[in-house]
Write a protein that binds this DNA or RNA. Sequence first.
DNA 1: ATGAAAGCGCTAACAG
DNA 2: CTGTTAGCGCTTTCAT
Lengths: 341, 341
Amino acid sequence: MTTIKDIAKEAGVSVTTVSRALNGYSDVNETTRKKILKVAKQLNYSPNTLARSLVMNKSKTIGLLVSGLNRASSKDNFTFEVLSGVNQAVSDTDYDLVLFSTTSTKQREKTYSQLCKERRVDGVIIQGIRTDDPYLKEVVESDIPCVLIDIPIQSDRVSFVTTDNVIGAQKAVTHLLELGHRRIAMINGHEFAFVSQERLEGYKIALSQAGIEYDPSLVINGDFDEDKAEEVAGLLLKEHQDVTSIFCASDLMALGVLKQIQRFGKKVPEDLSLIGYDDIILSSYVTPPLSTVSQNKFKLGYEAAKLLIKDLEDSQESKKVILKTELKIRGTTAQPRDNKL
Amino acid sequence: MTTIKDIAKEAGVSVTTVSRALNGYSDVNETTRKKILKVAKQLNYSPNTLARSLVMNKSKTIGLLVSGLNRASSKDNFTFEVLSGVNQAVSDTDYDLVLFSTTSTKQREKTYSQLCKERRVDGVIIQGIRTDDPYLKEVVESDIPCVLIDIPIQSDRVSFVTTDNVIGAQKAVTHLLELGHRRIAMINGHEFAFVSQERLEGYKIALSQAGIEYDPSLVINGDFDEDKAEEVAGLLLKEHQDVTSIFCASDLMALGVLKQIQRFGKKVPEDLSLIGYDDIILSSYVTPPLSTVSQNKFKLGYEAAKLLIKDLEDSQESKKVILKTELKIRGTTAQPRDNKL
DNA sequence: ATGAAAGCGCTAACAG
DNA sequence: CTGTTAGCGCTTTCAT
């Protein structure tokens, strides 16, 4: 592996000059530069970023802490799309991504901030971790520049990007309301997700605007899990026969609920309306296609990366960006039966 | 940021001793080690892996060169599943992943091997690049340990993992044959994918075993693209009205073909049988559910990472691993109409 | 415009 | 068992 030392020797100059020439400094004679560049190419030189990072104290790498990089989340391609967005934004720059896997045993051994500090990442993007994750606090409190996805924490070095969850949920529920539904149940995620809190908030607001009292027994957590949602939907449907529609905090859960509804021998949307959240790929392919609140997951990642990089370069103050959601009415929402008369 | 120097000072020993103590060498007094560990914790020490990598000449990072980390490939979650597998395997080790984005302009500026050399990755996993990619050759020829996914190149430092594409395709076509089909078309990927060559091979073998002559006009490339496949299927169906079934080299293309068939006013599988390849998530959710050849994409990534890491640790000779595929008969394949009589 | 020298944080002979 | 020394490849004062 050739080093600048080799180039220096070959070109008959000092390493200093080589370094300067290669890095495009102005204070180097054009002839020398030409020569050095030629020698560098000749020797097939590649700079050692490790050495550079060490001395410059920055690595030009961005750490990625995502929870959903596992087999289970391939159905819900949320993580992947976020990742794609991040990748896209990063690929326009000279940063590279390092993926910290938070799947395994390693997580307990090493904390996030340890991971980041050891690898000397310049900044980190965090997605998909629960708000009660003990290490979240740690990262946020560390001085590593960081942008959170869907966790609205903001401080000196931490920004976040999320979507308008309250409004999104509101749109979904309002849609149901406008169709004539009055008994609207909700399958939420879990209490350790900000998005769940916010979507519940939106649900409540929509109801209240329609003059309907909030009934807590109509809201159950499905942990963002397809099977769990299917299970709790069973309970719900049994307990509350008067429910005519269900709002799910994720499409994946809606898919589970859909199965349960069919098991009850009911038809969607004729007997029961169903609306999800996320707009995952599957949503438009299932039968009937799922009405949902669409959020731009790619952009979530893209904006996060953009934000982080800008922060890294210009050392801006922390910021937040809130993306808009969009209601997609497809085939699982319709007027309630009794309304049709 | 505390360094071993700080610890050395605080503990009243030399940096050497600190280094040895922290790295679990045996030749250090237990009392001293305890002390050093205590001080390290006290000072909230994190080793600087950059410095370590520099001196040890290995970075404990694995480079990942994947082409499909973009918005377009979220439907076909192939890339994601491979990535998950890699991540899973890697997360059991002390390696980290660095993602090289090959999406952008950067690709033309810097070659793969440059990327790898600059970041000093210990090895690299390559997936989803075309066999005519000029940089593929370069990586393979470089001395960077490397494992290829679905590209059967093997040499001193390069191994590969793939699936039994010939057999897989054979199984699909034989299934069609057994149902009674005789005119079986194929929508293939493109010539710069080994898997396409192999699947075509399997197609031919199956036909020949059934005593059917290979008709080249029945095979068209769809570039692994949904829309392209839809388009060429249109041509095919118009030209060859006698075709009773189509074998697609990817599920995504099968989805496109399915649309085209429906546009022709024909029904699957009554009028036309259709079988895909990959077993992507969507396949089991579309209506009718797609018959396909299932390959374990997660395992593809998992095995690749395992292979690479073993090579890195034990410096084995290169190897190959061939995963088995599985025929999944679902709802798009049936006996041809005239056969039912 | 160029070079000598110091040092980033760490590991690894080599002594003792 | 521990310390001294050198050096990984690079950037960066500070001279010249």
